[in-house]
Design a protein around this nucleic acid. Sequence first.
DNA 1: TGAATATAAAAAATCGATTTTCTTGAGATG
DNA 2: CATCTCAAGAAAATCGATTTTTTATATTCA
Lengths: 227, 227
Amino acid sequence: MTVSPSASRDMASSRIFETLKQDLIRGRFAAGEKLAISALKDHYRVGLSPLREALNRLAAYGLLEQVNQRGFRVPAMRLEELDDIAGLRTQLECMALTQAFQAGDPEWESQLLAAHHRLRRADEHPDRVEEWEQAHLRFHRALLASCGSHWLLRFIEQLHDQFDRYRRLAPPNPAVREVLDRQHGELVELALSRDIAAARALLDDHIRLSHGVARGCCQPAPPDSAV
Amino acid sequence: MTVSPSASRDMASSRIFETLKQDLIRGRFAAGEKLAISALKDHYRVGLSPLREALNRLAAYGLLEQVNQRGFRVPAMRLEELDDIAGLRTQLECMALTQAFQAGDPEWESQLLAAHHRLRRADEHPDRVEEWEQAHLRFHRALLASCGSHWLLRFIEQLHDQFDRYRRLAPPNPAVREVLDRQHGELVELALSRDIAAARALLDDHIRLSHGVARGCCQPAPPDSAV
DNA sequence: TGAATATAAAAAATCGATTTTCTTGAGATG
DNA sequence: CATCTCAAGAAAATCGATTTTTTATATTCA
């Protein structure tokens, strides 16, 4: 987030922040679960201070909730919130897309092509999920990177993380996945030809499809009487 | 036993977070300044741990920057960033306004009227700046409160805080201020009559005017050769 | 002289221990 | 039998001290 890029010499709090962030997005904790701080401390082999600093950052980022004197919990997952996230993501990304197409230069085009190539390579290895996830995130980043608004990109990134938390919990849908993969290539084409209207429509559809899949993460809440 | 209003029940880290947040927005620290942690500790009379947790939250929120092993600094103020913030604020607030008008119910109308009344009362006391600032923030919150998107409101709040950091540093402009105050009342009228198009135009203008005033915060950087 | 290096002082980050607050459940009360 | 009280245990929050890293200053060497 705000920590400077140098990777290896990172502070313990930044390392544990990144690790926890990924684990939260990957769904390694149950929604609504209360985090036992000393258990985390043992599991991740970090001290209390860096751990607590990371938890505080995650709470400010929206991947954790902090309750007054009773620690941190994983936010509940509600269909209503997923819809909110997806809807807003659509609007913000379409906004950024327009600006990115208008301001995009050859360097942006190159980076986009490169990111797309990496994503296609990752498509070929269905077993290496984390590599694909990273390539996918970077592709969407590259698509909007030239939009010129630091704050817009920041919010989009945050929404993307929130969205993925839901999507990753949903059962995979190979048929839709195939369409989504194809759309990435089409987005690149439209980017190169600067076809804003078509690209917006496609991106809207892309997110809508992905949203539909992600909705599978919440089964309808059973009435209280059920076992 | 007299339980003082929840505030004292808060954790030290939350109290110092709020205090620091306000002081940052009010411009009590110079832009670009490096924060000396132990000085803050003495000044605010808090321990190191709660202080560091608050600083971490503020960095995640965007009111501080954290540099790898060299602590926290106040973000620089750049005209370019103010323009980004104002532009995005306009787009997000207009988006929220539309949804708020569509979903607004009588309770929302009441709260908006109440917030506006408090703001007008605060207008009458030009000496009590902080009261006005709070009433103003709450008015704008009330205007959009019924929009139904938790995440949109969250981002708008964040942008508002960023924007105010610039605006509060700029020299006051009584002429523009008078127009801005009048616009608050007009926004209420348009809210009650659900005139979305007119309200969007007015809100756009409202932010544009305020943006113009806020721009006075950065005097053009003198060339290096100057004394 | 000027670049490079060593070193002392300062600041940040982290650790281990202490204090505070919540939670649980046994026993008292109505 | 349900509710309330209170102490013991668990967990969170905070403190004080230590370790690590940076910064400033002085010194050496070409």
